[in-house]
Amino acid sequence: MSADFWAGYVSGAAGIIIGNPLDLIKTRLQAGKTAPNVESTSTAAPTPQGFRGNFENAGSLVRGATAPILTYGALNALLFVTYNRTLALLSSQSLHQPSTSPTNFGHVFLAGATGGLASFIVSAPTELIKCRAQVSTDIHTTSWTIARDVWRTEGIRGLYYGGGITSVRDAVGYGFYFWSYEWTKQAWSSPDDTDRETAMKVLLCGGLAGVITWASIFPLDVIKTRVQTQVLHSMPREGEQSVLLQPEYQKRRLSSIEVAKLAYRTEGAGVFFRGLGICSVRAFVVNAVQWAVYEWMMKLLQPQ
């Protein structure tokens, strides 16, 4: 395997481990989930839970982390390999010199978008399993039980439910991701930088790239989350109500456009930015670490 594959794999796994608790809060805020075990037919907007309300117990801190930890490393590896190969093809750059700074930022954006589309193969089922696990308050619900039940009832098609909106989100998001990182890194770098200064700038540029990326696609991510969490992986027990959108709409699944229209009509435009604050904090921390780990491993693994 190439250096960028392993660098992407390890950095992706590290980012998930660090960012899962904040990602859980972000997902639950986006889903607009009603309180569990409460019967309701009201069309009023659900009230987001507070910070503490998003954790039922200590296990909630890692709820939904299994699927991303196992797969996000592969996703990140696929992303970086596709990005580097596409950028090399567009720029006539040698694949053996991936550390060379690109000069055409249009090519950077296009290569990033291509990498995002490629990563959809892994990200769509991973996001579906992760989001459903995160919004569930049943302590017996795990990533494995969700994946198993979806596979049994709907097959591979069920694992890719919401794949269309996921692919659009990934293409746009990763285009901005690589573009913003390369632009800020080149703008702030200097030949006189010490190793310490270079490391600090990588952390800062990586963090800002994460924030810029999520700000650019957050409404799409809200819609994706609601599309994928319209139903839980199993039927509710007697006396329970496991609804993630308004109860009267649970008889059939809504399309991305229908989800967006319903959310706007019942909760206003602000719903498309619910959770952006906590997401930005998470994005800065996670992507600062991811880029630092990626750059470090590339230097370690790449032949001089």
Score class of each variant (00 low, 15 high):
7 A>C: 14
173 G>A: 07
257 I>W: 14
18 I>F: 05
283 A>D: 13
46 P>N: 10
142 T>P: 08
64 G>F: 02
135 V>L: 01
73 G>F: 12
212 I>P: 14
301 L>G: 06
93 Q>D: 01
212 I>R: 14
197 E>K: 09
37 N>T: 00
78 L>E: 02
176 F>A: 08
266 T>D: 11
235 M>C: 12
64 G>N: 09
17 I>D: 01
45 A>G: 09
100 T>G: 08
113 A>K: 01
90 L>P: 07
43 T>Y: 06
25 I>V: 10
62 V>T: 15
37 N>G: 05
211 V>P: 13
287 N>V: 07
61 L>K: 00
17 I>S: 00
7 A>M: 06
241 Q>M: 14
35 A>R: 09
99 S>C: 12
287 N>Q: 07
213 T>Q: 06
77 A>F: 10
293 V>I: 07
279 C>H: 10
48 P>L: 08
32 G>A: 04
140 H>D: 09
274 R>T: 08
209 A>R: 06
245 L>V: 14
201 K>F: 03
23 D>K: 08
62 V>Y: 04
207 G>C: 03
288 A>I: 14
289 V>D: 00
181 Y>R: 15
150 V>W: 02
84 N>I: 12
168 V>D: 09
23 D>W: 12
166 T>R: 02
129 I>A: 01
240 E>Y: 02
112 G>Y: 00
247 P>A: 05
54 N>R: 10
83 Y>F: 14
19 G>Y: 02
180 S>L: 08
262 L>Y: 04
238 E>G: 09
48 P>N: 11
198 T>S: 15
41 T>K: 05
238 E>D: 08
127 E>C: 06
245 L>F: 01
235 M>Y: 12
105 F>M: 12
256 S>V: 01
40 S>F: 02
162 G>E: 11
145 T>M: 01
141 T>D: 11
177 Y>T: 03
216 S>D: 05
231 V>E: 13
247 P>F: 00
82 T>P: 02
55 F>L: 10
42 S>W: 06
284 F>N: 02
293 V>D: 01
192 D>G: 04
229 T>A: 00
26 K>W: 03
164 G>D: 11
198 T>A: 14
144 W>D: 03
166 T>S: 07
267 E>C: 07
269 A>H: 10
73 G>M: 06
43 T>A: 15
102 P>R: 04
20 N>H: 08
298 M>E: 03
